[in-house]
């Protein structure tokens, strides 16, 4: 099994490179863009859009642990969170209520 374990370490190294290459490129790029420019705003706008995209994928098409839950638990939980956020504007209340909704629905919907 030495080969298999060595292979995994190579993969970890590759994953490290695949991630930090973006970080290094980001630093190099950031030091060349004019701060208050439209291009900087565009980069920020794309970053927010991408992060929200990543997070909405967890809600709609999750991978990992959350994958074993039902959409009927995730979407109502998300709706409760948004609703409370708009109504009360309290992040902690909105997020914990959303998570609680998820917990209850997932519990009752579990096969």
């Amino acid at each position: 099994m030495i080969d298999q374990s060595l292979y995994l370490w190579v993969l970890i190294l590759l994953a490290f490179i695949a991630t930090d290459i973006w970080r290094v490129l980001g630093v190099l790029l950031a030091n060349r863009i004019t701060p208050e420019s439209l291009f900087m705003k565009w980069i920020n706008a794309v970053a927010y859009a991408m992060v929200c995209g990543v997070m909405m994928l967890v809600v709609v098409h999750p991978a990992g642990l959350v994958a074993s839950s039902s959409m009927l638990a995730r979407l109502p939980a998300f709706a409760v969170t948004i609703g409370l956020m708009l109504w009360r504007g309290n992040t902690l209340l909105a997020v914990s209520s959303g998570a609680f909704t998820f917990f209850c629905l997932d519990y009752f919907l579990a096969p």
């Binding site: 993969l11 590759l14 994953a15 490179i17 695949a18 991630t19 290459i21 973006w22 970080r23 490129l25 980001g26 630093v27 790029l29 950031a30 030091n31 863009i33 701060p35 900087m40 980069i43 920020n44 794309v46 970053a47 991408m50 992060v51 990543v54």
Partner: peptide, 27 residues
């Protein structure tokens, strides 16, 4: 695996640009 990780974490580049600007490393 390399491609998938690179694609999944590409947003890092944009977040880093934004953060470098927010912290003001250049200034």
């Amino acid at each position: 695996i390399f491609m998938a990780v690179a694609l999944a974490n590409m947003r890092m580049m944009l977040m880093v640009v934004s953060t470098v600007d927010l912290i003001g490393f250049r200034r």
